[in-house]
Amino acid sequence: MYHLIRPLFFRFEPEGIHHFVTAMLKTVNRIPGVSALQRKMLHVNDPRLEREVFGLKFKNPVGLGAGFDKNASHVKEIANLGFGFIEIGTVTPLPQPGNDKPRMFRLPADEGLINRMGFNNQGAEVAAGHLRHLKRDGLIIGGNIGKNKVTPNEKAVEDYVKCFDVLFDVVDYFVVNVSSPNTPGLRELQEKEPLKNILNTLQQRNSKNGISRPILLKIAPDLTDSQLDDIVDIVKETGIAGIIATNTTLSRQGLTSPSSVTSETGGLSGKPLTKRSTEVIKYLSEKSGKAFPIIGVGGIHSPSDAIEKLEAGASLVQIYTGFIYQGPTLIKRINKALLRRNK
């Protein structure tokens, strides 16, 4: 069904159709019985799919990556599609419009997307407000946090702390995003010393709250092996819960789409990222001796892509671009494939 309507969606500008579809999703779910019907058609409820990772119990290992629901405006409706967990954000302390439009570009020939959104969001307080009275029904929610564009790197830790404090009571885990290529200078925070400062500060904050939240680090696929070695050391030194591998890439290698699109600045996601993100997962898993959990994301467009990530060392997976290209049944297909694999 989705493959019949996708060509129509793809006639429209990507960001505009995204807002149209999410608005329609919210409208449709107001119709009595629709939510229950979606859950009946798309959910795969089986205890064999459950995962306990960094102290949290996930109904299934397939999550929605950050960026789709930046302001936590559609969590209830998205949950009906069968996800085991949803990551909101990236959220910054203050609202910001993001980069100038257009800022998202499709690469249908490569099943990819290029985006330079720039952490456009309504701010941490708005996201927290949307989550405060949400009925979870076992759904795990992650909060992906970043710094405002106007905040200099030497004060970045203050922005991460502000987001952490505002969202602490309404999310189940945190993701520190220092790997987006679309905020000037942000990736410089992946260097060992500034990164340790941010993570240690959040960990100290975490231990003062009586209860603690798992803190994960989202990394870029463009890191060298030496930088990945540093990441392993940082995870062990700071005691954070794990890694999300990976964010979007700056590489344009192997693309077949027209240069008019591939030359756009921004991070590339989707199928072109499949191999590299899996390589990073495998490297981190082996180098660390499986010392910490990894959430695998990047180019998952089929059940076999998800299984490949899990076999490489991921404990959970997330989809985003694959969700756009393959539609909501991808979640169910992955979960069904995992059940067949576990027979």
Rank of each mutant, 00 (worst) to 15 (best):
M1S: 15
Y2W: 05
L4H: 09
I5Y: 11
R6Q: 14
F9K: 00
F9D: 00
P14H: 04
P14W: 07
P14Y: 02
I17V: 15
H19F: 12
T27H: 08
V28S: 12
R30Y: 11
I31T: 14
S35L: 03
S35C: 12
L37V: 04
L37T: 13
L42V: 03
R48S: 14
L49R: 03
V53Y: 06
G55R: 09
L56K: 13
K57C: 09
F58M: 02
N60F: 01
V62R: 05
G65N: 08
A66R: 01
G67M: 11
G67P: 04
G67I: 12
F68P: 00
D69K: 02
K70F: 06
A72F: 10
A72Q: 08
A79I: 01
L81K: 03
F83K: 03
G84V: 04
T90H: 04
V91T: 12
T92R: 06
Q96H: 07
A109L: 14
G112W: 02
I114K: 01
F119Q: 00
N120I: 03
G123F: 09
A124G: 03
V126M: 05
A127P: 10
A128Q: 03
G129V: 11
H130S: 00
H130L: 02
H133P: 00
H133I: 00
H133W: 01
R136Y: 07
G138S: 07
G138F: 08
L139D: 06
G142M: 05
N144R: 01
I145E: 04
K147M: 04
V157G: 01
V166E: 08
V171E: 06
F174H: 07
V175Q: 02
V176T: 07
N177I: 10
S179M: 06
S180L: 06
P181N: 10
N182A: 11
T183I: 14
P184G: 01
L186A: 08
E188Y: 00
L189R: 01
Q190V: 08
E191S: 15
P194G: 11
L195C: 13
I198P: 00
N200H: 15
Q204I: 09
S207R: 14
K208P: 00
G210A: 11
S212D: 00
P214D: 11
I215E: 08
I215H: 05
L217M: 09
L217G: 04
I219P: 05
I219Y: 06
T224M: 07
S226Y: 01
Q227W: 01
D229K: 06
D230R: 01
K236H: 12
I244W: 06
A245M: 11
Q253I: 14
S257L: 03
P258R: 10
P272M: 03
K275I: 13
E279Q: 15
E279A: 02
E279F: 04
V280S: 09
K282V: 01
P293E: 12
P293Q: 11
G296T: 07
G298H: 05
I300S: 02
H301Y: 09
H301R: 02
S302W: 07
P303R: 09
S304L: 09
D305T: 03
I307E: 14
L310S: 08
L310W: 08
L316C: 06
V317G: 05
Q318H: 11
G322A: 10
I324W: 07
Y325E: 09
G327A: 12
P328C: 10
T329L: 14
L330C: 06
I331G: 03
K332Y: 05
K332P: 02
I334V: 13
N335I: 05
R340E: 15
R340K: 15
N342M: 12
